[in-house]
């Protein structure tokens, strides 16, 4: 009886020691692997090195604007529509706070709002709309074909819903973060905080000190 109990105790002790050793090894491995992961971004990071897909659309004054025109700045790009009562104002207001929080570095950040509703969102309306959040924001629109193409380039899911005269548009709500070299680097979400955006944008700007601006 006592021998069996003793054996059990030893087995248990062995198991506990083995488990602890395993935990320690896993912890060491995790620390080692994250140490080589480079800058610690808080947003979802895309390890891309190729330029973000370029496009040409029209700004509030009807001038054609391409993504590459904004090289040297961090571009924050969001897709939506002006008759969007809740999500779009929430996100655009957040991006205006991000820019303000960056103080002087805010001048090296460009927010671009691309409409998914070109039938109703004229260049003039886009201009009025984006200016309400920040006069430096750029609102882009184009033909239905051009908009659909850009949305497809960035895997933006969108669909009209509701009656023809008062439809809304269901759409994905990611904010695309493009670095000063024109590479798509990060994806922000509705629940990403202003602080997380500011933190990550500072990292991207640090990589490219004194870019065009």
């Amino acid at each position: 009886m006592t021998i069996i109990t003793e054996r059990r105790t030893w087995t248990l002790a062995l198991v506990v020691v083995a488990f602890a050793a395993g935990l320690w090894a896993a912890h060491r491995w995790h620390r080692a692997s994250s140490a080589v992961a480079g800058p610690e971004f808080q947003l979802a990071s895309l390890s891309t090195s190729t330029p973000a897909q370029d496009f040409t659309l029209y700004d509030g004054e009807g001038r054609s604007r391409s993504l590459r025109d904004f090289r040297g700045r961090v571009v924050l790009m969001f897709f939506g529509f002006t008759r969007c009562p809740d999500v779009c104002p929430t996100e655009l207001f957040k991006l205006s706070q991000v820019k303000q929080s960056l103080a002087d570095d805010g001048a090296r950040v460009q927010v671009i709002f691309i409409t998914l509703d070109p039938e109703r969102d004229s260049p003039a309306l886009m201009q009025t709309y984006t200016s309400a959040f920040d006069p430096d924001f750029v609102g882009l629109t184009g033909s239905r074909e051009q908009i659909d193409k850009v949305a497809a380039q960035y895997y933006v899911a969108h669909a009209k819903a509701g009656p023809p005269d008062s439809y809304v548009i269901d759409h994905s709500t990611s904010t695309y973060v493009i670095d000063p070299a024109g590479r798509l680097r990060l994806l922000g979400r509705m629940d990403t905080s202003v602080e997380a955006f500011v933190h990550d944008i500072r990292l991207l700007l640090r990589d490219q000190p004194g870019g065009a601006g």
């Binding site: 809740d86 899911a157 819903a161 509705m190």
Partner: peptide, 24 residues
């Protein structure tokens, strides 16, 4: 993957409960 908003005819206000309308 899409944020979808849909009109509803009415909203239940449960006994002893709350209904929250908030951004997002």
């Amino acid at each position: 993957g899409r944020m979808q908003m849909r009109p509803v005819a009415e909203a239940d206000v449960p006994a002893g409960g709350r209904v929250v309308f908030e951004p997002g």
